[in-house]
Amino acid sequence: MSGPGISVVICVYTEDRWEDILAAVSSVRAQSRPALETLLVVDHNRALLERLAGEYKEAGNVRVLANAGPRGLSAGRNTGIAASRGEVIAFLDDDAVAERDWLRHFAEGYADPRVMAVGGRTVPVWASGRRPAWFPEEFDWVVGCTYRGLPPGRVRVRNVLGGNASFRRTAFDAAGGFATGIGRDGDRRPLGCEETELCIRLSRARPEAVLLIDDRAVIHHRVPAPREHFRYFRTRTYAEGLSKALVARSVGADKGLESERRYTTRVLPAGVARGVRDALLARPGGAGRAGAIVAGVLAAAGGYAVGSLRARRGGARFRIVRIEDGEEGRAV
């Protein structure tokens, strides 16, 4: 097998996703380009830790670890990075399955030594069987998926999307790990943007670094029924605004909002126009999609304003972890 050895990290936190976790691991083990290892990092859930350890005790290339940092996705990822052996570390969501050539397409990107990160395309799998008519593709990031507005093919980007991404190990040596205090924390408010902040920090530490998205590296991400409703949409977009304020505090508004300005001024107005056109043509969901885009922008803007105010008052805290600090999980 040529190219870099790839470790896959899957962060998990609840037994409610047991079947999803097993499916995610199975999809990694079925890759056309085998992973060096799969690391399951359990976020402060002893019962799940012991159950997974029993499930995979005979699987030599699957390791089960406890999150050694504070509760949350960022610390779980840092635990996996520190415990992994691969030259490249890939991340897969615990409720997603990867297509067979997922790792092969990641590996191809690293043929260029300047490439420090490669992300892929995440396709939603809706619990109801199809996309809700009102749900705009421009906001698929709300459910952790690739959204309309990202360029197709293998292209250079500011940041990869964390649930379907990979990094060279040297990227973490240069920039540190994922910042704790920004991203997800179990079932609390659905914050995000930890991968955005890391990628911007990486580009500052290594200005020559190339970050790519290759839309052939595909995963399929399950969207549970509660996330198909407008209430979750509104909550998640507001939380994204809070997260963007933290990112802007860390790396500055110029870089922290660079891609968002294009998205807000070009992609979203075009989406509203399509929705209005579809409504005029009596196509299902057109008015709902246009309205959802407007509501999403307003909710995100409100979250950003609140987050910025909190940051100025010193109420927002996060920590950038150096992986060599020992943020390593304990094997079971």
Rank of each mutant, 00 (worst) to 15 (best):
R231C: 07
L191D: 00
R216C: 09
T196E: 07
A253Q: 01
E197K: 02
R206L: 15
S203G: 15
T196A: 09
H221Q: 14
R236T: 12
D187G: 12
L257M: 15
G192Y: 01
R216H: 11
A205N: 08
P226Y: 12
A217W: 03
Y232I: 05
F233T: 03
L242D: 06
R189I: 14
L242A: 07
A248R: 04
A209T: 11
A225T: 09
R189H: 09
L202D: 04
R188N: 13
G192S: 12
E228F: 02
L246G: 15
R204P: 00
F230I: 12
G252M: 08
T237Q: 03
I213L: 12
E208D: 15
L191W: 04
L198Q: 02
R206A: 12
E194K: 08
K255Q: 14
E197L: 05
G256I: 02
L257E: 03
I200W: 00
R249W: 09
A209V: 13
H221T: 07
D215Q: 06
F230G: 02
A253G: 00
R189V: 13
P226E: 10
F233Q: 06
C199P: 07
E228T: 04
R201K: 14
E228G: 03
R201N: 11
S250H: 10
K255G: 12
H220D: 06
I219N: 08
T235A: 15
P224T: 13
C193A: 14
A245Q: 08
A217L: 05
E195V: 10
Y238C: 06
A217N: 04
I213K: 13
D254M: 01
R249V: 06
H220W: 13
S203F: 00
L198K: 03
P190S: 11
L202M: 11
E195M: 13
R201P: 01
D215F: 02
R222A: 10
D215M: 05
Y238H: 15
C199N: 13
A209W: 07
R227G: 01
G186W: 03
F233D: 02
H221Y: 12
P226Q: 08
L257T: 03
L242H: 07
E208Q: 14
